[in-house]
Design a binder for these strands. Structure first.
Lengths: 224, 224
DNA sequence: CACGATTTGGGAAACCATTCACAAGCGCGT
DNA sequence: ACGCGCTTGTGAATGGTTTCCCAAATCGTG
């Protein structure tokens, strides 16, 4: 989690806590669903129930965006969704590169959730000559040697890294040198990056291990 | 994050904080790597550097396991790995069921990181008749209607949920009724479960949105 | 227009996690 | 046997997050 809170500029600077940012995405998804049901307003209590948080926390989270609720009524679904989108920077379109078109890479390339939330997988990159040139979910796989060109041409600032662990750091360095400033890392490796680059790591095996810990606790959890 | 700290039993009860548990998995991976390099001891400073945390935090984390370091020397790699495995409950073998054998499900079924860390995908379950009966990464896909039998027969307590969102809650309910007590949820849905069941959610689109937020901040982040 | 029911926004307290700082313990060299 | 350098383990301080709680704002009704 190489995400430091940039000590807010000279203005009245509203700083949104990291914990809040992580939840905004969830609120937004639920709000989008409500919008499709033609629901026009929602109270913090209702939205909190739908997103699995407590309503005080939800209200505090939303208060960081500004004051968009109406006392005695609730929040306007459309307005709130719009404000969250704004804060999350989803109003501008973002092109994403995916490096490492293996099993997981291919699955992610086709993941509907990305496209439907405004992220376009604009480039697929792989080192395997057998894969280069093939088309996966409508996008042609480019060779790893072209990485720098692809990143520049497609104006890419966000990359998804699904390479094998041994090459992850090297590929990461090249992405950063080419101008990428955010990386979603699925390789089981701790990446080191300059301070201006954000990395988020998704560690699938670690997730299961955390569940295993809780399983262990539940079954007696004998303390030796 | 439906993971409440079960108010430790009557004994001297050492409670490992959630934040620490999440990092233990990372330490363990690095330790395993060191073990293969025939490194026998490691200092908190070295291990901290390799895992991207600060050394004080690492030492505090490890202190929850007990006192396995040697002052002036460091930690024995093998011993430490063993202790972490014990606390994470990785000493017992755990069978995992995966429900929803779509793109993502297939990729996860073949994910080497699961197998190499002691999690065996013991069952694949899907509702699509076209997929039932096929073999994916050596495991035969079973029909959703057999879910209860499969869970019971394979003594499964952990499930990975990669179904489409609309059926996730329903499948979840059946898993829980069948005896599953931990769920790793990839469906973009907030699951509701009884208090004795732990759910961890991996929200891929949310991860990109969080990166998007930080991108936004970096580029001026005009405050309107 | 006043009142009661409702719901937000946010100050303050409680809780949890991280970082600091250093005493205590260990091994090695002399 | 002793001192020195190194490293752990942990209290105390700090910083961040969640929860509590209630004044202020809004709506609908009489």
């Amino acid at each position: 989690m190489t995400v430091q809170r940039e000590a807010a500029a000279g203005n009245g600077a509203r700083v949104v806590p990291d914990a809040t940012v992580a939840r905004l995405a969830v609120y937004l998804r639920v709000l989008t669903g409500l919008g499709e049901d033609a629901t026009t307003t929602v109270s913090s209590e209702e939205l909190a129930a739908a997103t699995g948080v407590n309503s005080a926390k939800l209200r505090k989270d939303l208060s960081f965006l500004g004051s968009y609720g109406i006392r005695g009524v609730g929040y306007d679904v459309a307005t709130l969704a719009e404000q969250i989108s704004r804060v999350l920077g989803l109003t501008v379109h973002r092109n994403v590169a995916l490096v490492g078109v293996g099993n997981l890479g291919q699955a992610l390339a086709g993941y509907a959730g990305f496209a439907s939330r405004g992220f376009r997988i604009a480039a697929l990159i792989d080192a395997d000559p057998g894969r280069v040139g093939t088309t996966v979910h409508g996008v042609t796989v480019r060779d790893l040697t072209d990485l720098e060109h692809v990143v520049a041409d497609e104006k890419i600032t966000i990359a998804v890294l699904t390479t094998p662990a041994p090459v992850a750091q090297e590929v990461c360095d090249r992405l950063v040198a080419a101008g990428v400033t955010s990386i979603l890392n699925f390789a089981p490796v701790v990446l080191s990056v300059p301070h201006h680059v954000d990395v988020r790591k998704v560690d699938l095996a670690a997730e299961l291990q955390i569940l295993s810990f809780h399983e262990n606790r539940k079954n007696g959890a004998l303390i030796v």
